[in-house]
Each structure stands twice: as C-alpha cells, then as structure tokens.
Amino acid sequence: MIDLSFLTDAMDGNVVLAQKFLGIFKSQAPKQMEELKSQLAQQDWEAVSTTAHSLKTQFAYLNLTQLSTQMEVIEQLADNQQTATIYSLVEEANHNFLEILRTELLA
C-alpha cells in the first residue's frame, strides 16, 4: 500500500512538495513500466537497469517496498545479464504496479 506519510516525512513535512512528487510519479511511472517491458523485449540490458533503478527509488519513496525490492532485483539481474528469471519478474512487478495504480492512485 502507498504510504504518503513516509513521502511527506521525506519532503520534510512539505505537503506541496509531496503532492508534486505524487503528480510526477503518476505521470512518469506508468510510462517507465511500459518502457521497461519494451527494453526487455529488445534485450537492452543497460536501459533495463537504468529504468529499474529509477522505479526502485520512486517506489521506495512511496513505501511500496515489494515493488521497490522487485526493481532492485531486476536492476541487479540486468547489470549481471542474468536473464533467465528477469522476464517473469518484470511481468510480476508490472501486475503488482497495475493493481496499485488501479486501486490506489486512480481510484
């Protein structure tokens, strides 16, 4: 679940900055998840690593720990080009993300 208190704390209690963060996340993260899938299809491991790295941090600020951990693993797998499990992991993370997007961010 998204925890906005964690984000607001990280923004030093500044609700305006926290709302701006959330706005950026809502517009940027869905596009990045789509990019991640296409980068994976093209086996562009450097791009996969960069995108997963960015998403990892964004999820962490929203205290979405499971998604953040999944992105960290994807980033490491891409860095080491250990691609056997990466496809299913991205699929699973995408499913989790869409669920959060549907139930919490777009509700």
Binding site: F6, A10, M11
Partner: peptide
C-alpha cells in the same frame, strides 16, 4: 542513500 529525507540532506 535514496530514499533520503530532504531535511537530512539540508
């Protein structure tokens, strides 16, 4: 290390 608090950075 990200995520970090802006106050901590300051």
């Amino acid at each position: 290390t990200k995520p970090f608090s802006l106050e901590e950075l300051y």
